[in-house]
């Protein structure tokens, strides 16, 4: 039980109810951005307050929470958010993907396949996929309403013109349920296919921008591309120096003063599990 004077999971019940209502609407209209009254959280906006509010609204006493930042469970942001919910909700936390019922994330979807019943909560800095292309909020709403997404391909077109291929590596726009173009948050494009027909629930919270959106289970999520330049997410052509994996998303690290580069799994939990099973490099 919580030892603090705060309400369970920090937010008051009325606020949580409002957020849940917005989330239900978001789930009913996959990929559509739903406005919500984003609250002050004990953290600067832009550091995951949207994700924290979503987690606070959906978490129950029996939930098991995992928090990852850049794929890792042990970064400052992940640790402080995990500690926060331990204090204000008293829930169990874990670093194991398969044990978690709620996974709040920044920048990654775990390598371990998600299962039905799990909820992914994404921290979203910019929920509007059209924001660099169309400055007017009113106009982007109209473009979404009318499914006018030609402009979305402009950026991809220019990428190919400049580099010969699509170099957009993260926050790669997707078409959800054949209807709304959605920013998948700054996850690598490598993770986009994990959203496609995922059995889990995916909830996205943008605290500063006051928007929520969602992808319900088993929903089509297709990365935008051209017929002659199909979606091909970039991945380092290397193996993890710790577990030897070649099919996971790798982080590049410098291991000495001479600029020697090595690659390790970005998903620390997944990498540890592989090593525990004796799959060391």
């Amino acid at each position: 039980m919580s030892a603090t004077p705060y309400n369970f999971a920090y937010l008051d019940e009325q606020t949580k109810r409002e957020i849940r209502r917005a989330l239900l609407k978001a789930l009913a209209i996959p990929g559509h951005q739903v406005p919500f009254a984003s609250r002050e959280m004990p953290l600067a906006r832009g550091w995951g307050t949207g994700g924290m509010q979503v987690t606070a609204a959906v978490i129950g006493r029996d939930d098991v929470l995992k928090v990852i930042d850049q794929g890792a469970d042990d970064t400052t942001n992940a640790v402080s958010i995990r500690q926060f919910f331990t204090r204000v909700a008293g829930v169990r936390t874990t670093t194991r993907t398969e044990e978690a019922t709620i996974i709040q994330t920044r920048h990654r979807i775990p390598e371990t396949p998600l299962r039905p019943g799990q909820i992914m909560v994404y921290q979203v800095p910019q929920p509007e996929p059209l924001w660099r292309l169309e400055p007017s909020r009113a106009e982007t709403r109209r473009l979404h309403a009318l499914a006018e997404y030609g402009i979305m391909h402009v950026k991809l077109y220019e990428d190919i013109a400049r580099h010969g291929r699509i170099t957009l590596a993260y926050d790669y726009p997707v078409l959800v349920h054949g209807r709304y173009v959605m920013a998948p948050s700054p996850i690598p494009a490598f993770d986009n296919p994990k959203l496609h027909r995922s059995p889990a629930i995916h909830l996205f919270g943008a605290g500063r921008e006051k928007r929520l959106y969602a992808v319900p289970p088993h929903t089509d999520v297709v990365s935008l591309a051209f017929e002659d330049h199909p979606f091909r997410p970039w991945k380092a052509d290397a193996a993890c120096m710790l577990c030897g994996a070649t099919d996971s998303y790798l982080d590049e690290i410098l291991i000495d003063d001479r600029g020697t580069r090595r690659f390790i799994c970005s998903d620390t939990d997944w990498c540890e599990r592989r090593r525990a099973k004796g799959k060391a490099a």
Binding site: G150, I151, H153, I160, F226, E227, D228, H229
Partner: peptide, 8 residues
């Protein structure tokens, strides 16, 4: 592209 062209 706005009219639906998708072949770069």
């Amino acid at each position: 592209m706005a009219a639906g062209a998708r072949h770069w």
